[in-house]
């Protein structure tokens, strides 16, 4: 019997299994020990694996990532937790100047298999500084891999793959999906760390989503059935590198695309997706590619966040604007 599992539970299982399988793996950050993390992702791990492998650090994010770099130089595999998206910014210099570059600066001699876990995005009624979608800061940095799961089973798979990966990985956890459950067998096998997957097949339009918006896009695809649109949903999983093969194959088939993300639209991650697709699929497109994204404002307060987050209605509105009549 497989029990329904939440994304939080799947991430916890992935950490536990990685700690069991590989003695080089360490888990550390703020409150990850006795408390099990503010989102309980590391629940029970310190008790099970001891405080030399799972431990609380002093409260300093640059310190956490900077020391993880030194530990990786000495053969360990650190998996560190940033408490919230916006609280990872103090570590930005260590991430962009060192974590991303050391392999290159040493001509491949010193790789850094470090995973930086970042709970990100909104939708949980967080107060300011607790809801940022910070993916583009990281995807703009060569040398980093940036991944984000959309489902519990994929959260397990991607985290195991990230920990096994020889490159540094920014692992973005869509915190509003932590508690959604899915009945699934947890396994690291399946699509590789750098592949996108088609979550729902359809022939008329491709919705491209990732992290927290995968579930929203799937919901929109179901609702679209009523309008007689046969909607395909691609879950990117890997934001960097970008899986051109899977995405362009879908787009060439459907000819219509909407990119959905929570982050602000202006120079957001969707801009890169749109640019790549028009470069590679121009002659297959039946309509301009549209984006459904967050507003270009600092993340709004809990009472107003529903206006910022992509909703099923906003996605369907965008689908409706894909110049269907021109084709009739």
């Amino acid at each position: 019997m497989t029990e329904p599992v939440s994304m939080a539970g799947a991430l916890n299982a992935a950490l536990a299994d990685a700690l069991s399988d590989d003695p080089r793996v360490l888990v550390f950050g703020e409150d990850v020990g006795a408390l099990g993390g503010v989102f309980r992702i590391t629940d029970g791990l310190a008790a099970k694996f001891g405080d030399e492998r799972v431990f609380d650090t002093p409260l300093a994010e640059s310190g956490i990532v900077g020391t993880a770099i030194g530990m990786a130089m000495n053969g360990l595999v650190p998996v560190v937790e940033m408490q919230f998206d916006a609280f990872a910014y103090p570590a930005f210099e260590q991430i962009t100047s060192h974590l991303a570059k050391l392999r290159n600066r040493t001509r491949g001699r010193v790789g850094l298999p470090v995973v930086v876990r970042v709970p990100y995005g909104g939708g949980i009624g967080g107060v300011e500084h607790h809801s940022d979608s910070s993916e583009a800061y990281y995807t703009h940095t060569p040398g980093l891999r940036v991944v984000t799961p959309g489902t519990p089973a994929d959260a397990y798979r991607l985290l195991r793959q990230a920990i096994a990966c020889p490159d540094p990985v920014i692992f973005l956890e869509p915190k509003r999906r932590y508690w959604a459950k899915e009945t699934a067998v947890l396994s690291a096998d399946g699509p590789a760390i750098d592949r996108a997957v088609v979550r729902r097949t359809g022939n008329d339009v491709t919705l491209i989503a990732y992290g927290g918006t995968v579930a929203t896009a799937l919901e929109a695809a179901e609702a679209a059935v009523e309008e007689d649109w046969d909607v395909e949903v691609v879950d990117l999983r890997s934001l960097s590198p970008f899986d051109d093969e899977t995405v362009t194959a879908s787009v060439r088939r459907t000819g219509r695309v909407v990119v959905v993300h929570e982050a602000s639209r202006f120079t957001g991650y969707g801009a890169e997706v749109v640019a790549r697709l028009q470069e590679q699929c121009f002659h297959y497109l039946q309509a301009p590619i549209l984006r459904v994204a967050g507003l270009d404002i600092p993340y709004p307060p809990p009472k107003l966040e529903q206006h910022h987050l992509p909703t099923v209605d906003r996605i369907l509105d965008a689908v409706a604007r894909l110049q269907w009549d021109d084709n009739a």
């Binding site: 020391t67 993880a68 000495n74 650190p78």
Partner: peptide, 8 residues
Amino acid sequence: LHAVGLAH
């Protein structure tokens, strides 16, 4: 910080 991590 790299030195501290390596030493730890």
